[in-house]
């Protein structure tokens, strides 16, 4: 347990010392929020900003999670992983610490996006609702972080991973329910969107925002996160003998 905390501490310390990375990670979601959320002339909902904010929050988690996949791969390439693996600390702590760091970093970024959204006109929710949103985002974050870390460990080189990242991040976002409700989508898109794990998280956050309690999506996200976590641990054990 203390090993996990120490590994997370190391990553946060490293992250906080690189200012460019901290700020640049916020530019894209903030731009979406402002330029699309405020400017798009849509007629299917009252306050479009309220509609798109859950989508942008989940997108922030997605980008943070996918870009975090390279962290463990670089630790491996640069020799840190071998040093850590030779320590008496349980080896899985390295992986769990990494996944929790990536998720935690994503949550910090989404908090800032949330503040910006409220500042430019999104409806203020109750503390309980924000708590529920954080739970949904956390589960989604663990799902994506475990997934990206596994893929990165498996692919084993940075160029292939960034190609993979570019390949899946935008299609995942556009085929989700982030930008429009299912009933205004073309039927083929609606079918894909209903299968997209991003939509589960977005719909759950939206549900919370309109006063609902999305138990179904939350339990589904939990199951998916656990499944990917198990895969991740298996792959990790395999690549570290």
């Amino acid at each position: 347990m203390s090993g996990i905390v120490t590994y997370i501490e190391r990553d946060f310390l490293k992250w906080s010392r690189g200012r460019v990375a901290v700020i640049s990670a916020l530019i894209m979601p903030a731009a979406w929020l402002i330029f699309v959320g405020l400017a798009l002339p849509v007629r299917f909902t009252g306050n479009y900003l309220d509609f798109i904010t859950p989508g942008i929050l989940v997108m922030t988690m997605l980008t943070a999670g996918l870009s975090g996949g390279t962290l463990l791969m670089f630790d491996k390439i640069l020799g840190f992983l071998n040093k850590f693996l030779a320590l008496p600390t349980p080896r899985e702590d390295i992986l769990i610490g990494k996944i929790l760091f990536i998720t935690g970093r994503g949550l910090i970024q989404t908090s800032i996006i949330l503040v910006i959204a409220v500042l430019i006109g999104a409806t203020l929710l109750s503390p309980l609702q924000y708590g529920l949103i954080y739970i949904v985002l956390f589960l989604f974050g663990v799902l994506i972080a475990a997934f990206s870390t596994t893929i990165a460990l498996y692919l084993d080189d940075h160029d292939s991973y960034s190609a993979f990242n570019t390949m899946i991040s935008m299609p995942l976002f556009f085929t989700s329910s982030a930008l429009m409700p299912y009933d205004v989508m073309p039927p083929w898109l609606a079918t894909i969107a209903r299968l997209n794990p991003l939509s589960y998280a977005i719909d759950a956050v939206r549900d919370v925002g309109s006063g609902g309690l999305p138990l179904g999506s939350v339990s589904l996200l939990t199951i998916m996160a656990l499944l990917v976590l198990v895969c991740s641990i298996t792959v990790f054990r395999k690549v570290t003998i």
Partner: peptide
């Protein structure tokens, strides 16, 4: 692992720390 230490040849130290 409890009774050894290992220094690999890569010189892996965190340069921002």
């Amino acid at each position: 692992r409890n009774c050894i230490s290992y220094v690999p040849q890569d010189m892996a130290v965190d340069i921002r720390l």
